[in-house]
């Protein structure tokens, strides 16, 4: 075991991954098709596609939705490797493991005899993986093509209470603060410990650090509250409604919904 505790290691890599996941606006800054759209259109559009992929009883429709989403990513300069790395691969691994046994366990006419795979099993497994992949792809494209503050504004369109939107924004912001704090805690303790840690010590360490974090979180929330009050916050939330729909946005929204309805309808029941 290296001298860096593995708790710390996992945290350090997580900080990097999270920064990448949440802040990197690499794709959101590009000048592609989706980036030009109002975030509410994207939110509505992709939610509709996710719904279609989950609700349809037709595998072809799941596949069509998947390819439609991928095409949208392609025309929005979102690299397919990013999709593969962050959605396709993890979902394939995770859901794949779960779906695999269904091949053998689902009762129905046999497709292959040797290890008995049933037609129903194959269908069930394909449905599970197909839906999970498609929905995850849609969600990821939405997040990758939209700047976080814009996404927050868009969530307002779902009639979520303002307070929820503000809390979401602040949560994202303080995740970094606390992650850094956690990293510092682990680093500080590591500098005082030379010998490799056994599991028990590491568990104690994790619990102690979580304890420090919880107490810091409470202090922090008090401080942030004071800072909000100082600027006139009295419990009611007011936000600037910054978004304006342009003709193109309406067109895109209509298209999105038309495609979703068509797919759903063509899929039939």
């Amino acid at each position: 075991m290296s001298s860096r505790s593995f708790l710390e290691r996992s945290l350090a890599s997580f900080v990097a991954i999270i920064e990448q996941a949440i802040v990197a606006e690499e794709f959101a800054r590009r000048d592609g098709f989706l980036q030009k759209l109002d975030p509410r259109v994207k939110l509505g559009g992709f939610l509709a596609l996710i719904f279609v992929s989950v609700a349809t009883h037709n595998l072809a429709i799941v596949a069509a939705t998947f390819f439609l989403a991928t095409a949208l990513a392609f025309f929005s300069e979102i690299s397919l490797s990013a999709l593969a790395l962050r959605a396709w691969l993890p979902v394939a691994l995770f859901t794949g493991v779960i779906a695999m046994p269904a091949l053998f366990l689902t009762p129905g006419p046999a497709l292959i005899r040797a290890p008995m795979i049933t037609a129903n099993g194959l269908r069930a497994a394909t449905f599970l993986i197909g839906r999970a992949e498609t929905a995850a792809t849609c969600a990821l494209i939405l997040v990758l093509s939209t700047k976080w503050p814009h996404l927050l504004h868009a969530l307002r369109a779902l009639r979520l209470p303002r307070a929820v939107i503000v809390v979401l924004g602040m949560t994202q912001r303080y995740i970094f603060f606390l992650l850094r704090a956690a990293q510092d805690l682990f680093a500080a303790r590591r500098s005082r410990i030379i010998a490799p840690l056994d599991g028990r010590t590491r568990r104690h360490l994790a619990a102690a650090n979580a304890g420090v974090l919880i107490s810091r979180s409470l202090d922090l929330s008090g401080e942030v509250y004071a800072a909000m009050q100082a600027r006139g916050f009295r419990g009611e939330i007011h936000t600037l409604e910054a978004l304006r729909m342009r003709p193109n946005d309406w067109l895109a929204l209509t298209l999105f919904l038309a495609v979703a309805v068509t797919l759903f309808w063509v899929g039939g029941h």
């Binding site: 997580f14 949560t171 995740i175 974090l213 929330s221 008090g222 509250y225």
Partner: peptide, 21 residues
């Protein structure tokens, strides 16, 4: 409520990252 939930949600998120031996 707003700052309390925000910071505590961030805490929950961070704790979910702790990988325990």
């Amino acid at each position: 409520l707003v700052p309390l939930l925000s910071v505590f949600a961030a805490f929950s998120f961070v704790v979910m990252m702790f990988n325990l031996p």
